[in-house]
């Protein structure tokens, strides 16, 4: 991890959806309290069990939130990209981080340290409102992850991951995650993901390219057990 000497700009903070409607004066205050950090792909940002009350915002790149078993197996909880916020569960109740965070790509983060966070929180009730919004979204996401792990078959879980983490802004949706990361997110092992993706490719539903998976027929990936949630925009699954 590297601390960047360039200060965080007000306009950069404004690009974070949670703060879009915040008055300029308060945005400036928030920006002055933040520290720019960069992480290389694979670097750990914080680990499960650490005490930390800081808040991180993704400015560039992607990070993943993971749980790890005593046997070393990893379960992904979510992937977060630009504008997303993480790491503040212990904010009002100093406690241990319930999960770990790891950089997926080269990422730039804005860190709001705990002491500054407490100060800004007192002066700026809109920050608490923004956090309520973020955590409410995350609760919805985790409720769904629990249901998927508890009731869905493995192929459906992999298909759902492909749809959830695809970039839908391109002509054909693409997923830039390794088989191992897809396995962690869908609660299985890499071999099962590779076998399932091979079957999907044989059926003409996806195409594997170097470093990415192109989804040719998204409708064929919709799990039969998925209900109204599938109509929710993919970004809301990621928070």
């Amino acid at each position: 991890m590297a601390f960047d000497r360039f200060p965080v700009k007000t306009a950069e903070v404004q690009s974070i959806p949670a703060f879009r409607d915040m008055p300029l004066e308060q945005l400036t205050l928030l920006a002055s309290a933040m520290i720019r950090q960069t992480y290389a792909p694979g670097q750990i940002i914080f680990t499960e069990g650490e005490v930390s009350g800081s808040l991180w915002f993704v400015f560039e790149g992607r990070i993943k939130i993971i749980k790890q078993s005593l046997n070393g197996r990893v379960q992904g909880l979510c992937v977060m990209d630009q504008g997303k916020c993480f790491g503040s569960c212990p904010l009002f109740d100093i406690n241990k981080n319930p999960a770990s965070a790891q950089a997926l790509d080269q990422v730039t983060l804005f860190l709001l340290p705990e002491a500054e966070l407490q100060q800004v929180k007192v002066r700026e009730p809109q920050l608490v409102k923004a956090l309520l919004h973020i955590y409410s979204q995350r609760l919805t996401h985790l409720a769904k992850v629990s249901e998927i792990l508890g009731t869905w078959a493995v192929p459906d879980r992999i298909n759902d991951c492909l749809l959830t983490y695809a970039n839908h802004t391109t002509m054909q949706p693409t997923v830039e995650l390794t088989h191992e990361k897809l396995a962690a997110l869908s609660g299985t092992v890499r071999e099962v993901v590779s076998r399932h993706l091979g079957n999907l490719e044989k059926d003409g539903i996806i195409r594997s390219e170097l470093g990415r998976i192109v989804i040719l027929n998204p409708n064929a990936l919709i799990p039969p057990c998925a209900c109204e949630d599938r109509n929710v925009s993919p970004s809301s699954h990621r928070t």
Binding site: D93, Y135, L149
Partner: peptide, 20 residues
């Protein structure tokens, strides 16, 4: 906010149990 984050922690534990 505390009520929501408490529930969030509870669900993270549930995900852990279901996964591992």
């Amino acid at each position: 906010l505390r009520l929501i984050t408490d529930k969030l922690k509870q669900f993270i534990t549930l995900v852990h149990d279901l996964a591992f």
